[in-house]
Simulated scan of single mutants.
Amino acid sequence: MVRLISIFVGIGFAFVAMVAFVIGVYGWATEPTEKTAEYTFHLYPRDFQFSFEGPFGRWDQVELQRGYKVYKEVCAACHGLEFVAFRNLADLGYSEAQIKAEAANWQVPGIDPVTGEATTRPGTPTDYFPSPYPNDVAARAANNNAIPPDLSLITKARPNGTDYTASLLTGYTDPNTFQIDGKLLRQEFPDFTVPEGLHFNPYFHSLNIAMAPPLTSTGQVTYDDGTEATIRQMSHDVAAFLTWAAEPKMIERKQTGWAALGFVLFATVLAYLAKQQIWAPVKPKNRKTKPNAS
């Protein structure tokens, strides 16, 4: 009797849980979305058309070198590349001598061999790109209490990260004149404000971002190959470079995938031919049929 009561109690609890789940799903599906400024005027990343996209994509080393220069001269003042070593620049087409000279231009943490105290020294090819701040406290103090993220994996940490990065860098605008489909932000949400110390960017999830516009004018960086350094071009190049930093083996992975698909296809054909060869002598049994009544 006790067991029977326990079964009915369990069924009752399961029924109540199912009803609550159905009611919750129905409410979620039918409840109208709150029309906030963040929901209405947030933009999804634009398509910047990178050379490494698609199954047959390839790195453009000249583009990556331009992107590295933008990172070095603009982004490195606030953002580090914790998981990228100077020797990895060989993938961008730099020679060993160029990499040594490039690493020596950076100061990395070290230890004084005489006193044992922490110090800095010129980098070597085996060192990793250093953080511009000694700790989080210093980073917050220099950036309005916001810690600039490390950029090693930034394009993998954001949905559609490459296009998002390029869109974000080109997306700074005036909230007083910003509009979508003829709807002016200030008219739709007259109480919308940009807090002090933040900057309006419709590609950022909350529309307000702590990072000031890093790319502000054409020619901010001088490219060695003579390419005009417009804001869009610099954003495109540094986004490509950060994608390489996050996935340096992406092209090799794609090539390995094609080889794996070819092997699977070849093995499938062999398996089919082997099946035909093995079972060829075996004749299927004829089905027994009932004799016709005469």
Rank of each mutant, 00 (worst) to 15 (best):
N286H: 08
V269A: 11
Q98S: 03
Y128R: 15
F178M: 07
P213F: 07
R3Y: 05
F129C: 01
W106A: 05
S95W: 04
G67M: 10
N176G: 01
L215W: 03
R253H: 12
F52Y: 15
T155N: 14
G57R: 10
L151T: 02
Y133S: 04
Y272I: 15
G93F: 06
I180L: 15
H205W: 04
A14Q: 01
A77C: 03
G219C: 10
V282G: 00
W28I: 05
D47G: 03
T115Q: 12
F266C: 15
Y68E: 03
E188V: 13
L198T: 14
G257I: 08
A37W: 05
A90V: 02
T230G: 01
W279C: 06
F41N: 02
M250Q: 14
D174W: 10
I11G: 02
G262S: 05
N135E: 00
A267R: 07
D174V: 03
T119S: 07
L270N: 00
T243L: 09
A240W: 10
R121P: 01
V16E: 00
V16Q: 01
S152A: 07
I5S: 00
C75F: 15
T222M: 13
P214A: 03
V114A: 02
D60W: 09
N292Y: 03
A239Y: 09
T155C: 14
A246V: 14
T155P: 14
F189W: 04
W244A: 04
Y44A: 15
T216M: 08
E53C: 11
G27Y: 06
E63S: 14
V74C: 03
E228H: 01
A210P: 14
F52P: 12
A280I: 03
A210H: 10
F13T: 08
K249D: 13
Q49N: 14
P130H: 08
Y203I: 10
P195L: 15
Y94L: 15
E102I: 08
T218A: 08
G123V: 11
V264W: 08
Y128W: 11
A260H: 02
R121V: 00
R287W: 04
I154C: 04
A104Q: 04
L198F: 11
E117D: 07
P284L: 06
L215D: 04
L215C: 05
A104E: 07
G80N: 13
H42S: 12
